[in-house]
Computed example of a mutant assay.
Amino acid sequence: MNATTTGRFAAPHEPTYRILLIEDDLGDALLVEELLHDTGLRFELTTRTTLAEARAELAATPIDCILLDLHLPDVSGTDAVTTVRSMAPHTAVIVLTGLAEAQAGPDAMAAGAQDYLVKGKVEADLLHRTVRYAVYRSETERASSEAQAARLRAEENARLERGLLPQPILDTSTVRVTSRYLPGATLALLGGDFLDVVEGDGGLLHAVVGDVSGHGPDAAALGVCLRIAWRSLVLGGHRGDDLLHLMERILLAERGGQHMFATCTLLTLDQKAGTATLHLAGHHEPLLTTSEGTRELEAAHGIALGIFSGPHRWPATVVPLPATGALTLYTDGLTEGHSGAANERLGVEGLLELIATLPAEDPAVQVDLLIKETHELNAGRHSDDLAVLRLDWGSPPARS
């Protein structure tokens, strides 16, 4: 039975309560409905006679308050309360007990009900107050639970961020480092993208941007592991092909039974020689910005880490650099979105066209504008995690 109605004495601005009555006695159900009419509440009443029917209703319809009889054909006692609470953990539950069940109400509240009422002793004013206060307490509990979940997400994000987004180790280098990281889903933890920059011997600047397959804490944990391994190995003197072999061994050991893999770009910037040395492991090329504009560098490719075991080669590409410029390393989240009404993938070509329209600004401002524009073009669609690392040297390149 369903009923949408307003109490006889409802206030003009009274909210409408969506109430589910789970009661197999039709006589008691009619009495409850009559009492609701006298409460002054605005309500939408749905009545179900079994817990199985109630389960289907709760799955299909949002409910503010459940009035629950403790003696149903398919469940009874506090088991009814715990079962209903498991089905609707953030919905107010008011238990209806019999005159001879003195302990049933307190037991029901101990099992999770917000309140209880004794059949035959309920008046309209009492029912009015009980429903309103139970819904209020339930909403307060929900808000508190959501706030606690948000705090836990923020704390976990902070821990992961410290691992995925470390402070660059720069001793004498004059290169300016700009980094950004955004998870692909709203409220999501950081994903498996990672980046890092360290200065090695002889003033060489080493950088990495990588992307672990998948999302969530497992991908993030493996990303943290690979980022820390990269920093330790670079500071220990490992370079290029040798470095990637060791990173792959670590990935295979740390991924456990999950078949995760990782792509990455390794970069060594030598300002004295005016060169950048690239190693690509399943990742795309960086972008080079000069006074003439921005273009994608051409570089040799190697296989992603962890695709299959066996000996691999990751060839090196040495690129000459101008005295002034910028290199941008990034993950797929910057190009895999869709652009505008045409719903076409942005891609590297679209990214370069977009960069050409951006005003000449401070590097950090330009990176933020680029991310903002790609997100707006994607029109709120889901996108991959996004990591951007930009390295600027010399004076800021002017736009031609």
Rank of each mutant, 00 (worst) to 15 (best):
N2V: 06
A11Q: 15
P12I: 11
T16K: 12
L20T: 03
V32P: 08
D38F: 09
L41Y: 11
E44N: 07
A59Q: 02
I63E: 00
L70I: 03
H71L: 06
S76E: 13
D79P: 00
P89W: 02
I94Q: 08
G98A: 15
E101I: 05
G112S: 13
D115C: 11
Y116G: 05
V118H: 08
V122C: 11
D125Y: 08
L127T: 07
H128T: 07
E139C: 06
R142Q: 14
A147M: 12
R153N: 15
V177Q: 09
S179H: 06
A185V: 13
L195T: 08
A207G: 01
V208G: 00
G214M: 08
A221F: 01
V224Y: 10
C225K: 14
C225S: 15
D241E: 11
H259D: 15
F261N: 11
T263W: 03
L267E: 03
T268M: 03
T268N: 01
L269C: 02
Q271H: 03
L278D: 02
L278K: 02
L280E: 04
P286D: 12
G302T: 09
A304S: 13
G306H: 03
G306P: 01
I307V: 15
H312E: 04
H312G: 01
A316M: 04
T317G: 11
L321R: 07
T324M: 01
E336H: 00
H338Y: 15
R345A: 09
L354T: 11
D362A: 09
V365C: 10
V365S: 14
I371V: 14
E373S: 08
H375E: 13
R381M: 11
